[in-house]
């Protein structure tokens, strides 16, 4: 059906991202295809958890198995926006959430006054006018965590079903930010871990609720006693896609988690982050905060290992 309608159709699950954008005329569609008919189940295993895309963020955040085994993911889901939005918004929707920019997430009238931008109706990026691309920011809280937890999404489309690692789901472009084809539906997410994997998500935003992340760190670590066997560190809201901090991951491998190591790793992780002046607070400050959220996230993982709780 989506293929039939082409670009004039969109899928809607919780609608918390879509409806404001329709009202502000950032999206213009003739047909909405509701996904309410899709199942909404969480299937838990000891090293794997499969979550249907239609599971609400609130359900995921409160799921005790997720909280215990995939702690960072439950935390990330519970930190998205505000309680009423988490009751409607789905985990699939948050993986697909549109990239954001404070030149773009504005009403039609405002964008008309500002001059339309490249992401919608215009031909230049208002944040970086000399750049040929769109610099809108990936603002999903759960996507970085899903990547850190080795997540795989299921996609169903006219050409059949397929699976894709979450890390391959995004592109470094504010407009074409997903590798998912428009007529494909994200049907579910599988998270995977070893028995000794611990995870945490730290989100930075101005207020305790409602706000999108202005920096975030998702950390998943496989630990053998004191030392790090494997580790994934993925940043949110510092690029057009969830940014994996490969250098820091490599650095941590085999290391013992002491203060100095954590600090150094956070420093390395923050390096590739490149926030621009298109979200709340100054991008200089946001850049400096990346190492802080990474450090806090690693520290939380470290505390879980020591039995301090998550």
């Amino acid at each position: 059906m989506a293929e039939e309608h082409g670009a004039r159709a969109m899928f809607v699950a919780g609608g918390t991202d879509l409806f404001p954008k329709l009202k502000r005329r950032q999206f213009e569609v003739e047909t909405l295809i509701g996904l309410d008919f899709l199942p909404r189940v969480i299937r838990n295993g000891s090293t794997e958890c499969a979550i249907d895309a239609g599971v609400t963020l609130a359900t995921a955040a409160h799921d005790s198995h997720l909280q215990a085994g995939f702690t960072g993911y439950a935390q990330a889901a519970g930190l998205v926006s505000s309680p009423p939005l988490r009751n409607a918004g789905t985990i699939g929707g948050n993986l697909c959430v549109d990239t954001r920019c404070n030149y773009y997430d504005m009403t039609y009238e405002w964008r008309k006054a500002a001059g339309f931008c490249i992401k919608k109706d215009g031909d230049i990026c208002l944040v970086a006018p000399s750049s040929p691309r769109c610099w809108a920011v990936s603002s999903s809280d759960t996507a970085p965590m899903a990547i850190a937890l080795d997540g795989v999404v299921g996609l169903a489309g006219p050409e059949g079903d397929r699976e894709l690692p979450v890390s391959a789901l995004y592109r470094d472009d504010g407009i074409e930010y997903m590798a998912k084809r428009p007529a494909e539906v994200l049907t579910g997410l599988r998270l995977r871990k070893s028995a000794n994997t611990r995870s945490a998500y730290v989100k930075l935003r101005r207020r305790g609720s409602i706000d999108f992340p202005i920096a975030g760190a998702a950390v998943a670590m496989e630990l053998d006693g004191e030392s790090v066997i494997g580790c994934r560190i993925v940043l949110s809201a510092v690029a057009s896609y969830p940014l994996e901090a490969a250098a820091a991951e490599k650095f941590l491998k085999g290391k013992r988690l002491d203060q100095e190591t954590i600090r150094e790793a956070a420093e390395l992780a923050a390096k590739p982050a490149k926030p621009l002046d298109n979200a709340d607070l100054s991008h200089f400050w946001r850049k400096r905060m990346v190492r802080v959220v990474v450090e806090q996230a690693i520290q939380r993982v470290s505390d879980q290992r020591a039995g301090f709780g998550g």
């Binding site: 505000s82 404070n102 997430d105 504005m106 009403t107 405002w110 101005r206 207020r207 305790g208 609720s209 409602i210 706000d211 999108f212 709340d280």
Partner: peptide, 11 residues
């Protein structure tokens, strides 16, 4: 930012 999301009112 003429919106309630970006104009920050304490929650």
């Amino acid at each position: 930012w003429p919106s309630m999301l970006e104009y920050k009112s304490p929650t």
